[in-house]
């Protein structure tokens, strides 16, 4: 079927530098995106922080509570019970359907940087011993954007969760929204994942959507907004259009705290703002209230 559709344009290339590598026992990699060195400046209060100390505080500034972005593996470590994660659908690899310049290289670089195969990892895990179907985004993977693989993995996550009657927890960090480099196919992942959530609702198990910095565009405007309960991390940027676009379109001064988690809470768009150290406990409590 594919051959027919792309007759004359055989431009596919799989993008997976480590095919077949099992990630059943994922090992976290150091967040390499942060500037190297022992010290760094807090983006919230400009205090100079000792990197090791920051790591011990779940990447939260001990002075002002600013939540630094964290990678997928680190998130998994913080949220799921130790050793409980089994990865699903890791064999789905991105291709370059439009022949978009620089895209294959971008994915390969992201894989090297994050130690992840794509912008979301999905699988089975336990949170305070409660089994869940878990999805975790990594912003450092092409901006946490949703292309075909991300859409397919999430869809299969919801489908399998329904079949196995598991609650679903997805931690989004989709700053890039729908992935530009896969064009219209990315846009359609919004429909694919949203309808998967609708079907999943039939099994009457909860979907807890956790929005972390940043969750924007097509990720926010699809499955991530469809949680039975929506939680956000303090200060996380949440919105549809990027702040620069809003600024340029409206030529207005953006209000204080525009598109933050607290702003979304105040406007009635989310249920809770939960600091990172409390997230695991809060998710577990909500899960227990549904079981």
């Amino acid at each position: 079927m594919l051959k027919d559709l792309f007759r004359g344009r055989p431009r596919y290339a799989t993008i997976n530098p480590t095919p077949g590598e099992s990630r059943q026992e994922p090992r976290p990699v150091a967040p390499k995106e942060a500037p190297d060195g022992l010290w760094l400046k807090c983006d919230g209060c400009e205090t100079i922080l000792y990197r090791k100390e920051l790591q011990q505080h779940a990447q939260i500034c001990p002075k002002c509570g600013y939540h630094f972005r964290i990678g997928g593996w680190e998130r998994l470590e913080q949220l799921a019970d130790e050793g409980s994660f089994t990865v699903w659908e890791d064999h789905l690899a991105s291709v370059d359907p439009l022949g978009f310049p620089g895209y294959p290289e971008k994915v390969v670089q992201a894989q090297a940087r994050t130690g992840l195969s794509e912008a979301v990892i999905v699988g089975r895990a336990a949170i305070e011993e409660l089994p869940v179907a878990l999805g975790i985004f990594d912003f450092n993977f092409v901006g946490g954007s949703m292309g075909s693989v991300v859409g397919e993995r999430l869809t299969r996550l919801f489908e399998r969760a329904e079949a196995e009657r598991l609650p679903v927890v997805v931690v989004s960090a989709g700053g890039g929204g729908a992935r530009m480099q896969e064009g219209i196919l990315s846009l359609m992942q919004m429909a694919k994942t949203s309808q998967a959530v609708a079907r999943y609702r039939r099994c009457r198990m909860p979907f807890i959507s956790v929005l972390t910095d940043p969750t924007m565009g097509g990720v926010y405007a699809s499955f991530a907004s469809l949680g039975d309960v929506i939680i956000a991390e303090p200060g996380a940027r949440i919105g549809f259009a990027g702040p620069r676009i809003v600024q340029e379109t409206t030529r207005q001064v953006l209000p204080e705290g525009f598109q933050t988690a607290e702003y979304a809470l105040q406007n009635g768009m989310i249920d809770l703002v939960v600091p990172r150290p409390k997230l695991r406990e809060q998710v577990a409590q909500l899960l227990r209230l549904h079981l």
Binding site: M190, A191, S194, Q195, V197, A198, M216, G217, Y220, A221, S222, F223, A224, S225, L226, I238, G239, F240, A241, G242, I245, V246, T249, T250, Q252, L254, P255, F258, Q259, Y263, N267, G268, M269
Partner: peptide, 26 residues
């Protein structure tokens, strides 16, 4: 596109798009 304005964001532009998509699928 959906309007990228301050009030539009306040009133949940992203959320309502998600809801519209889900509604249509059902």
């Amino acid at each position: 596109g959906a309007y990228p304005g301050i009030e539009a964001e306040q009133r949940g532009q992203g959320l309502v798009i998600a809801e519209a998509i889900m509604t249509m699928s059902q």
